[in-house]
Design a protein around this nucleic acid. Structure first.
Ligand SMILES: [Mn+2]
Ligand SMILES: [Mn+2]
Ligand SMILES: [Zn+2]
Ligand SMILES: [Zn+2]
Lengths: 150, 150
DNA sequence: GGCATATTGATAACTATTATCATTATGTCA
DNA sequence: TGACATAATGATAATAGTTATCAATATGCC
């Protein structure tokens, strides 16, 4: 299985990631996972924070970041970092790998996957002697909605 | 022609980009272009700064950023932003489009391109009603050198 | 209930990048 | 050549997203 990989950040992430061992129940973490599971995906941490505040008034932004790291460690949430450098989060778990079409006008994300592209990527990597562990593909353009408006 | 596109940053870039009209000669800008043209590519702004200081002692980091923006506007330099969010620069101009293989061990970049992948991307975009304007593909894994060491 | 400790919120710190602004360099024209 | 308009520069402040710190609080277990 191909897994999308993000390059490591300069500042190392939290050491204690939620491995679901020794971690306690937390209403905020549940609320944050609920935000991602029930809403549309591809939210930034700030957007998650705003949505979570409706369910958990007073919840701090640091808690959101911590919970997202924790949930990503569990695989319950997926993180991906597009070229604006702002991490986006979407519910993980059962969701299969996919790439993203990104609208340069409205910024919306569309999920897409082409098995042939996936296979050719492995071939390209092998051609250069690479042992592939993941990839990241973003396609930019106008979404149908925005294209109509022009 | 497919052009690699980076998502817009939060803070808008400089208004006055070097369009080679009304801009004056600058020894620093020339030195910075020389750093990228003569050295190996895929340097961060900080790395460019360090290299430039050997030719231009006392050159400021702000000048490096300004020059890179300027040179990117001219097309003489290409910018791309991998998932660590740190922009990398390489000489542009005559260089054709390519994607990047990135080693997860040593962080080195290898350039690669597969015409078939390029074509299938356009097909995938069209399938979702997207008018494609660019894309970004990064493949992660162990480079041959690092794979040997394990 | 009491205890060990995981979680939290406020806030400081950090990194990469851009904005500001006073100073300097460059090109043009007399 | 010298003066002038202004582009370029360097130091530094500001910004944005994210992580670290730490005291206060919540949780799970006995
Ligand atoms: Mn997605
Ligand atoms: Mn390259
Ligand atoms: Zn759109
Ligand atoms: Zn390597």
């Amino acid at each position: 299985m191909i897994i999308v990989i993000n390059m490591p950040r300069k500042t190392p992430p939290h050491k204690k990631v939620c491995d679901c061992q020794g971690s306690r129940r937390s209403r905020r973490r549940e609320a944050i996972l609920d935000v991602l599971s029930s809403g549309e995906g591809h939210l930034s941490a700030e957007q998650v924070h705003k949505a979570a505040q409706k369910r958990m008034p007073g919840i701090g932004i640091a808690t959101v970041y911590r919970a997202l790291k924790c949930l990503c460690g569990c695989g319950k949430v997926l993180e991906f970092i597009p070229s604006d450098g702002v991490a986006r989060y979407e519910p993980g778990g059962d969701k299969p790998h996919h790439d993203h079409l990104i609208c340069t006008a409205c910024g919306c994300f569309t999920e897409a996957v082409d098995p042939e592209i996936e296979r050719l990527q492995a071939r390209l990597a092998a051609k250069h002697g690479y042992a592939i562990s993941g990839h990241r593909l973003e396609i930019y353009g106008l979404c149908p909605c925005c294209a109509k408006k022009k």
